[in-house]
Design a protein around this nucleic acid. Sequence first.
DNA 1: TGAACATATCGAATAAATTCGATATGAGGA
DNA 2: TCCTCATATCGAATTTATTCGATATGTTCA
Lengths: 104, 104
Amino acid sequence: MNRHISDAKVFKALCDEHRLMILELLRSGEKCACVLLEELDIAQSTLSHHMKILCESGIIDSRNEGKWTYYFISEEGSQSAKSLLADLTSVKEIQPSRGVRTCP
Amino acid sequence: MNRHISDAKVFKALCDEHRLMILELLRSGEKCACVLLEELDIAQSTLSHHMKILCESGIIDSRNEGKWTYYFISEEGSQSAKSLLADLTSVKEIQPSRGVRTCP
DNA sequence: TGAACATATCGAATAAATTCGATATGAGGA
DNA sequence: TCCTCATATCGAATTTATTCGATATGTTCA
């Protein structure tokens, strides 16, 4: 079940402020790269790099329409991110009661 | 509401594999630093650095007992992380229907 | 086909994070 | 009080991420 070994990827996608801002922009519906570029004050190649990371994390998906690429929040991807976070922070059933010393 | 500006911090705490492993270890109950250290094959100063980041993110909390420090998953902190992720990936009510072109 | 535009990739510069050993701090017990 | 042990902090080395300009790819339209 070693999910945590490689699943830092999902959270890595979320730990950059530009990428969080992109996510925020996409909450109001899909946008093409050129619109995102106008809002973000970063170089086009930088935006492309961020979109690649977001897409590879699964949280964002894209579709092509002619020469444009539209990005949108993936329902499936964000659901699995939420499940992963819930798992990571959930305390297991069988555990020593708090306050029990595990040190000598 | 500009939460995303500074709230990369919570996710930054989750984007390192050692820190995810620490979280996994704490799922079975609080542990003192020396126990974590045995499991992780990293230097003591490195562990201390990771624990600081995790605690500052709010996801993990600590308590002192004598010379030991015990770390545990914070119910409150992980709840707010989950809320934040849910917000970030939730699509807003009013939005243009998908497929509407926002580019010329 | 060729010009114009949107996006992706490459390579290099800069910035940020991780890691370690050395050392400091602070608590407990002799 | 002094010694020992647990954890934190410091400073430097290394690794990883971000960023940009330049260029490549691929699409549309004349």
